[in-house]
Every structure is written in C-alpha cells, then in structure tokens.
Design a protein around this nucleic acid. Sequence first.
DNA 1: TGTACATCAGTGAACGCGCGTTCACTGATGTAC
DNA 2: TGTACATCAGTGAACGCGCGTTCACTGATGTAC
Lengths: 201, 201
Amino acid sequence: MKDSSSRQRNKRGEGSKLREEILQAATKLLEETGSEESVTLRAIAREIGVAAPSIYGHFDSRESIVDTVIDQAFEDFFAAVLQSTQNVGDPVERLRKSGVAYLEFADEFPQRYAILFDRREHIEHSRTEFHSREAAFNALVALVQACIDSGQSSSDDASKDSVAIWAALHGLAMLRANMKFDWPDINDTLDRILNGVAHIN
Amino acid sequence: MKDSSSRQRNKRGEGSKLREEILQAATKLLEETGSEESVTLRAIAREIGVAAPSIYGHFDSRESIVDTVIDQAFEDFFAAVLQSTQNVGDPVERLRKSGVAYLEFADEFPQRYAILFDRREHIEHSRTEFHSREAAFNALVALVQACIDSGQSSSDDASKDSVAIWAALHGLAMLRANMKFDWPDINDTLDRILNGVAHIN
DNA sequence: TGTACATCAGTGAACGCGCGTTCACTGATGTAC
DNA sequence: TGTACATCAGTGAACGCGCGTTCACTGATGTAC
C-alpha cells in the first residue's frame, strides 16, 4: 500500500489517470486477496493513497468498479486465447494452443479467471458478457468442427463435445487453483482431455 | 424467516436442539443466497427466531458454524456418490452411476457443492477435509483401474485419467450452476466425458 | 405435598469495526484580460 | 507582464448500516428436602 503522502495530485486534464489507478488497484486486490468482496472501495483508496470519496469522480459505485475489472479480465482472457493461435494453420494444433493458453491464463491470474465464470449474479445481469462468452464458445465449436473436417477428429458432434471440453478445462483450472494436490503435468492432462473428448485420432 | 414470537424455548436437556436448528438455518441461507459471506451469524439468528448471542451457547464463532456446514456437506456428498454404486458389480456401470450421482448432487445443492471445492483458504487450513477429498479421489482411481482390469477401458494411466475425469465433472457442475447456457442433456455430456477420457471401449 | 434453589436456555443492550456513500470544502493550476 | 478568477482534482468529517462478539441478566424448569 502506498503512503498517502507519496501521491502527487494529477495535473489538470490528467484526472482520468486516477481511473486507471483505481482499476489497477482493484485488480491487484482481487488477485492478492482472492475474493471479490474484499475488493472494497476503501481498500482501493488505501492502496492508491487517496481519500475514499475521490473515487466517485470516476465511478458511480463500488459495483461499477468491479464490473469494469471483470469486463477487462474477460477481454484479456479472450485475447490471450485468440492470440495463441495466430499464424497456426493446423486445427488440431490450434486447439491445443488454445487449451494451453486457456490454462496458462488461469494459472497466472487465478482470481481473475475464476471471477469470469464463477459469479452467478453478475452473469445473470450482464447481457454483454453473456454474448462474449457465447462468442468464445462458438469459436471452440468451430475449432473442433475444423478438426473433424480435416479428418483429424472422429467426434460425432462438435458442439456437444465442445461442452465437455470446456467443462474439463474449466474444472481443471479451478481445481488446480483451489486444491492442494499432487497435480500431474498440466500438458499431459490437457492432452488426455483433448485427445479423449475431442476424439483426436 | 420465522417470527421470533413463534419460537418456544427448548426444554431443559434439549438445548442442543438449537444446535441443529443453527446448522439447518446456515445451510438454508447458504443454498438460498448463494454466497458464503451472506451466511452471517445474525442472519442465522433471524432465520431461527432467536437472539444473536444465543448462538454462542453452541458455537464458538461464526466461522465454526460455516466449517461445520461444509464438513457436513462433504459427508453428504461423498455418501450420495458412494451409495449410488451399492449393489452394482460392473465397474463401468459403477463409474457411470457415480458420475450421475456426482452431477445430481451438484445440480440439487449447487451452493453446497460449490463450497466443497471452491474455497481456497478453508481448504488450505483443513487437514481433515484434505484427507477426505484424497480418499474420494482414490476411490475414483480404483474405479477406473477396475474398468481397465476388466478389459472395458483402454486407459494407460488410471490416476492421470482420473484427474481429467474429476476436472470435467467439476467443471460441468460449476458451469451448469453458474452460467446461463443452452446446456445439452447432462447424461449425454457425462457419457462423452467418461467414454472419451476413461477410454471405455 | 409444598417450597427453596440451582440450573439451564436464552435475552437485550452495548461495544467497536469497516463499509458505501454524501456533503460542503480546499487549494493548486491554468487562463483571460 | 501581472493578477483575478474559474476550473479541476481531490479532501475530511460525517451519516447510517450490519456485522461479530461480550456482558450482565432473566425467567422458566426441574429437583432436593
């Protein structure tokens, strides 16, 4: 936590810098404390070294900060997975790289990952997010279908097998983040999931 | 919530009945509100129709109530899964029945299920629980091994494939509880997971 | 059988805490003249 | 160039709230004599 005396007031016209600091502090708190409810408005203010009411210049409420952090986390996550398949032609390879990127993001930012798929209320209220997730799922289905089309997968239903793949990746990510366990190599588990469920020949 | 005037004080020697009421109320609150932190000591007291300090006759702290609820949930869960394979000889059938029971418990008591595998701090502190989970996992490995031994599975590693199976079941349970989605039939997804990852012939 | 008394189940008021949020404000910074 | 002033970034005190927990207590119930 910064000492409040160390912070310099932003210059005129640069007030929106505080907005970025708020989001960074909230993200840091989320990742470090590991629970959304400990990302309090006052903790964010403390972290930045600012008085609590200063935040209201940039966000309406505590909730809107958390919502913004989650939206950003989803964008980061989706971008990381998409980016992993850049310049990769072979669909099986794309599928594997996506899986690796998925699990790596969850390993590196477990709390940010968890909050994406783990918040019942938020998900129910956010239409935008629902559609992002749907788009991400459709991308997975397309990838599995491409493996089928190229003769590398004997899956009889890309969509239904994608549900199983998604579940397995999500479960693995969550369990690895939450449970002490003598986990086998993550790439091995990933291969078992993809080979088995996606029926890669 | 009961009206506090409706509650009759327990007779002498029956004071421990309140203990049961506390646990029931905490479980109900957990399941209904869907988050552990809203299971407050005062909410429990309100639910029962009792003054908040009355709880201290039966539990040291709010935390010990929640811990007890979780321990109980784990026992219920494990018992439900075990019981599903009673009188079933064929290992593949046992594996399937276990999977169905696993997902049914998660569907019926999503919050109680989620709290079992989803609480980083609690899990880190509870040795007993860790061992219960380990026992449950070992039972799964033994089941997969039995499928291999009976020639019904071509898995090359019961333990590693069990990790993948566990991950897939957990992920499916969590996603179904948390996400609005046009989920395919749960038995179909379960079959895809077991057939694919456990290499059932 | 009656009564004094110990025990037990549970209460009501109070505590300090951290929270989100509101409010009237301050003081530095840049700009118009 | 100097100065008055508007604007902007941020503050400090206060609010009401629900929380976990402590404390001294009350009053019904069963028991010993």
